[in-house]
Amino acid sequence: MPTYTLASSVSAEIDIRKSRFIACAIPVANRDEAMRELDGLRATHPGATHVCWALLAGGQSGMSDDGEPSGTAGRPILEVLRHHEVDGVLAAVVRYYGGIKLGAGGLVRAYTDAIATAMQQAERVERVERGLIGIELDYADEARVRRWIEQHEAELVESAYGMTVRLVVRMAAAAREPAALELRDLTNGRAGIEVRT
Score class of each variant (00 low, 15 high):
Met1Ala: 13
Met1Tyr: 11
Tyr4Cys: 06
Ala7Gln: 12
Ser8Asp: 10
Ser9Gln: 12
Ile16His: 01
Phe21Val: 01
Pro27Met: 11
Val28Tyr: 05
Ala29Pro: 01
Arg31Ala: 15
Ala34Leu: 07
Ala34Val: 06
Arg36Thr: 14
Asp39Ala: 15
Leu41Arg: 12
Thr44Asp: 14
Pro46Phe: 06
Thr49Tyr: 11
Cys52Glu: 06
Cys52Val: 03
Leu55Tyr: 05
Gly58His: 06
Ser61Gly: 15
Met63Pro: 00
Ser64Asn: 14
Gly74Arg: 00
Gly74Asp: 02
Glu79Cys: 06
His84Asp: 14
His84Arg: 14
Val86His: 03
Ala91Met: 08
Val93Trp: 00
Val93Gly: 05
Tyr96Cys: 01
Tyr97Ile: 01
Gly98Val: 04
Gly98Tyr: 10
Gly99Lys: 01
Ile100Leu: 13
Lys101Ile: 04
Leu102Glu: 04
Leu102Gln: 06
Gly103Leu: 07
Val108Ile: 15
Arg109Ile: 04
Asp113Thr: 08
Ala116Leu: 02
Thr117Tyr: 02
Thr117Met: 07
Gln121His: 14
Ala122Glu: 03
Arg124Met: 10
Glu129Arg: 14
Gly134Phe: 00
Glu136Gly: 13
Leu137Ile: 05
Asp138Met: 01
Asp138Ala: 12
Tyr139Asn: 04
Asp141Leu: 07
Glu142Leu: 13
Arg147Pro: 00
Ile149His: 06
His152Gln: 13
His152Tyr: 08
Glu153Ile: 00
Val157Asp: 11
Val157Ile: 15
Val157Lys: 10
Glu158Trp: 09
Ser159Ile: 14
Ala160Trp: 10
Ala160Asp: 15
Val165Gly: 08
Leu167Met: 15
Ala174Cys: 04
Arg176Trp: 05
Leu181Asn: 08
Glu182Val: 00
Leu183Ile: 14
Ile193Met: 11
